[in-house]
């Protein structure tokens, strides 16, 4: 059985963020300025231009998506709880 992370219910929710480079949408969450959760789907993974083609190859982060999430947080479209 797969359970839900209660932090998503009690704290900030996941919210859509669109990548400024490839236009794919992922679900993002920030519990603080330094914390980020990103839920991709197959469509976003397919659209990403930085993601390596080879399956299983390590890929720590998409730089363009990181910048997009930061921009969304700064402009306020992605909620960041007060510390």
């Amino acid at each position: 059985m797969v359970r839900t992370d209660e932090r998503l219910i009690d704290g900030a929710p996941m919210q859509p963020v669109r990548c400024l480079r490839c236009s794919a949408t992922v679900q993002a969450r920030k519990a603080s300025w330094q914390q980020t959760s990103l839920q991709w789907n197959a469509e976003a993974a397919g659209a990403c231009e930085e993601r390596p083609a080879e399956r299983g190859e390590r890929f720590e982060a998409c730089g363009a998506l990181r910048d997009s999430v930061r921009a969304a947080a700064v402009e306020g479209s992605l909620e960041v709880p007060e510390a």
Binding site: A31, Q34, T36, S37, L38, Q39, W40, N41, A42, A61
Partner: peptide, 8 residues
Amino acid sequence: DRFEFELD
């Protein structure tokens, strides 16, 4: 599906 979590 890809999921990322960077801890503060």
